[in-house]
Every structure is written in C-alpha cells, then in structure tokens.
Design a protein around this nucleic acid. Structure first.
Length: 154
DNA sequence: GCCAACGTTGGC
DNA sequence: GCCAACGTTGGC
C-alpha cells in the first residue's frame, strides 16, 4: 500500500464538502498535469491512502485522510464537451487523463498547517515533495516514514 | 531541439 | 492582487 497527498482548493472542494457527499465518496478528476496523470494512471491503487491537502487558501495544510476506493480510470470530464475540463484530444480509446475515486477516512481534529510541516523540514521531512521549492504537483507521493511522522503531529 | 512567451499554481 | 516558479506551447 502506498501513500499520497492530494491538493484541493477548499473554496471549490473542501474536506467538509467530501464529507457531505453520499457515501463520502468523490471522483478525483480534472488533473491536467502529466506527472500527476502518470501517478493516477499507473501507481495509485485501490486501498492506498492519501492526505487531503487544502491549498490556495488562507490556511494551507493537511485536513485529513482519504482512501482510494477505485484505482485509475479515464477521467470522464475530459470527454464531456460542456465540462470545464473537457479536452478534445482525449479519446475514449486513448484517454489523455485519468481519475481515481476517493472516500473520506477521517478529518483531523485540527489542520496540520504548511507552516508546521515546514518547521519540521530540516529534521524529518527533508524529502517531502510538498515542501520542495516551487512544487506545483497536485498529486504527489508521500514516503511511509513521512506519512507516519505527520500522523504523530495530529 | 532550443528557447522565449505565455499560462497556471499557490503562498503570501 | 502580487509575483516566483514552473509547465506548456509554438516559432524557428
């Protein structure tokens, strides 16, 4: 089982929005970056766990945990002509973009803020992709040791 | 294949 | 709203 971090802008889709959905399950779609696409398509499997990260907001940080309940499959929004994420280059027989389904596992009692994660960067989270300068990946791997350390912060 | 221009991300 | 950093595009 592998660990991941998924970014979402809480103004569009927060961890509480996920919690309100039927079965607390949602399709993680709209990822339009090749590196992230490759992970969704090839590496993120049913049963994996991911941090739900709130980005582009007043208080960025990790809000909770989701599990992958369906592994990579062609992103339906890429085929939907009326959708904001429509991509005419993505074909049913050769999809350009991939999605997974996630289900809420837990919302943390408090947000583990980006500031707080940074404070540990020197000693514990040296390789954490999120903390790398200029990082823009919306889906990224989290090493098991980093995952477990972050859980102790909650 | 290079690289300048442009668009997007995301913290502040 | 600003801007640094990065990915993508397209002319050559």
């Amino acid at each position: 089982m592998n660990h991941w971090l998924f970014k979402s802008e809480p103004d569009s889709f927060s961890i509480d929005d996920l919690g309100k959905l039927a079965k607390q399950t949602a399709t993680w779609d709209g990822v339009r970056n090749y590196q992230a696409r490759n992970m969704l398509r090839d590496s993120i499997k049913k049963g994996d766990l991911a941090f739900f990260y709130h980005s582009s907001c007043a208080m960025p940080g990790i809000a909770g945990i989701v599990s992958i309940v369906r592994g990579g499959y062609p992103d339906p929004t890429a085929f939907d002509r009326k959708h904001h994420y429509f991509d005419p280059d993505s074909r049913q027989e050769a999809p350009s973009w991939f999605a997974v389904d996630v289900k809420l596992v837990s919302k943390f009692g408090r947000l583990i803020t980006l500031d707080e994660l940074r404070a540990h960067a020197a000693k514990k989270l040296q390789d954490f992709v999120l903390l790398r300068r200029g990082n823009r990946l919306s889906v990224m791997p989290v090493a098991k040791k980093d995952w477990e350390f972050i859980l102790t912060l909650e």
